[in-house]
Amino acid sequence: MLKTKRTIIFGLLLFLAVSLNAQQSRVTAAYTFLQQGKLDSAKATIDVAILHSETQSDGQAWYVRGFIYKTIYNQSEKSNKQSSSRIEGLISFKKSLTIDTTQENVTENIKNIKYLATTLYNDAAASLDTIDYKIAVNNFDIFREYYLLVDPSAENFKQKEIDFANAMATVYTRIYEADRKGKTDFLNYAKASYNKALSFDPNNINANYNMGILYYNQAVNLINQSDYDLDIVALNDVQDNSINLFKQSLPFMEKAYALDPNKKETLLGLSGIYFSLNEKEKSNEFKQKLEQIGK
């Protein structure tokens, strides 16, 4: 029923767009090719039409272009996380939205932009691994741009930003952990991502805990990677640097603890930080709390 209604609306819009001049005939021809399933011809025809001065400012022509590219994406590029047709579709619907302010077209353009943007979000989520993470970042950026264009007050968008930043930080941490000496940049990327999540929500427990752990493990690794031949002066420098990192870890871990006092990992982390800062009484306090929870 909905599909039929959409087809009628689309047909009506197209009818209104059709005129006697040649360029607009091209738009009609492109749509006909689309209906016939001749997507290559539809694409070639509409790409010529939108370059011409008579139709380059025609919202209807851009809408048809968007529809053709969306169809190409759906039919042959859906498994391609970097589909160029999807991007062309978004560009076209956005252009149409800017030019054509009639209510029906605005509604259709928004609906299509939301649809394609959502597929970008899904592909970003599916690319959150140590190999495709750049695709994830790029797709999420484009998703953000288009989704906020059509729904600037999206209620759950902040949560999406937080979740994505945390997820990216996780990916960066994995890359760093796999090669701590060679991939130190990724430690900084991970921290930047957690900071981004915290900029949206300072009370995000995952970001606080994980940020604390990043600094904590960095401090421990600094000591554990030291050579036994280190002289005492150099050992003092290592201690100074690690103490500095433990102190940077502390506020994040304390915040995570304030947000969830019964989280075992946080209690373990705080016990470890205070132990490393040679504050044994405080370390034991958290150790005891951990033992009580474990009972």
Partner: peptide, 12 residues
């Protein structure tokens, strides 16, 4: 999105 990774602290 799965954003939660439980990383345990290294041994102090």
């Amino acid at each position: 999105l799965s954003s939660w990774m439980v990383v345990l602290p290294d041994q102090s």
